[in-house]
């Protein structure tokens, strides 16, 4: 369960997140959409406690798996060693590492140093560390960035499987087709505020509504 209640954050007096409230229930995938600078990443960082809110509150119903917009690991470690380190930090048994390797389909690169992986492979390692231990909450910032089309489909399946297993999943994305394919609900942020919260519908319909919402919000 994820609950954001009147969340606010300012930087240098400039409001970046304004009174954001929504929730994500267990088994639900909610997409956080918005143009660049809409406050999506800041909202996620507030949710995870990486930033303190200026007002309001955010509540997670358990430990969260997090994939940042730009994922980085330790170049000198192998994928398996890195995931073992994350497992120790999360106080998880070593067996969870093997499950995460399979879930994110990175077993074939498990013994390669992270520094020698392609961008797409690194992103899959990022997904692996996020789903490590099957957390009840997943916060994924642009999870399919850098993935090829087949890997995008696999990543969507992984997100869906996590939700089907009971996780509350919040996904930020610029790709409306992805939101339409993956999300049960979308929250549209413009200028740091929620301007719509609805079911995504099909991709073309979502695109038309999104553009209309952004244009209207920017005019007001």
């Amino acid at each position: 369960m994820i609950v954001l209640d009147g969340l606010c954050r300012s930087f240098g007096g400039r409001p970046v997140v304004r009174n954001v409230s929504f929730s994500v229930g267990p088994g639900e995938v909610v997409g956080c959409l918005g143009p660049n600078g809409a406050g999506k990443t800041t909202t996620m960082r507030l949710l995870l406690g990486l930033l303190r809110p200026s007002g309001g509150s955010a509540c997670l119903g358990g430990p969260a798996g997090y994939l940042p917009e730009v994922f980085a690991a330790y170049d000198g470690l192998s994928v398996r060693a890195y995931l073992r380190f994350v497992a120790r930090m999360k106080r998880l048994p070593a067996a969870t590492v093997e499950r995460a390797l399979d879930a994110a389909q990175v077993r074939e690169i498990a013994d390669r140093p992270v520094g020698r992986l392609s961008k797409g492979q690194r992103q899959r390692v990022g997904l692996a560390q996020a789903v490590l231990g099957e957390p009840p909450v997943l916060v994924l910032d642009e999870p399919t960035i850098g993935l090829d089309p087949a890997q995008v489909v696999e990543a969507r399946a992984l997100v869906r499987a996590s939700a089907d297993a009971g996780a509350a999943v919040l996904v930020s994305t610029h790709l409306l087709a992805e939101a339409a394919a993956m999300c049960d609900r979308v929250v549209v942020l413009v200028g740091g505020a929620v301007v719509a919260e609805e079911r995504p519908g099909d991709a073309a319909d979502l695109e038309a509504r999104f553009l209309r919402l952004v244009a209207t919000a920017e005019l007001t």
Binding site: G49, V70, A73, Y74
Partner: peptide, 9 residues
């Protein structure tokens, strides 16, 4: 950004 991942745990 690896520090953020640790602090988010």
């Amino acid at each position: 950004g690896t520090l953020d991942l640790l602090l988010a745990i």
